[in-house]
Amino acid sequence: MPVTQAWLSLIALSLGSTLLALFGASGIWAALAMLALAWIKAQLILRVYLNLQSAPGWGRGFALVLAIYMSVIMGLAVLAG
């Protein structure tokens, strides 16, 4: 994916989470949605900006660790209710 496309996606995702917050979305589902958007953004930065797409093995490794980490964060968000 070229960097400009990644940038456009990042902007769109950021607007998405800000809009969610502005329209007063709250509760567990809103929190999970915002975290999911952040997860995609983090993944875009790792793959495109940091160019891990050129090193697929490392890309998969980072993606796996990020997935475990985001699951923990989402779990804690659910626990906090």
Binding site: A21, M34, A38, K41, A42
Partner: peptide, 10 residues
Amino acid sequence: VLLFPIIYLL
């Protein structure tokens, strides 16, 4: 991008 939703939005 990870800090923003966790601190500001959740």
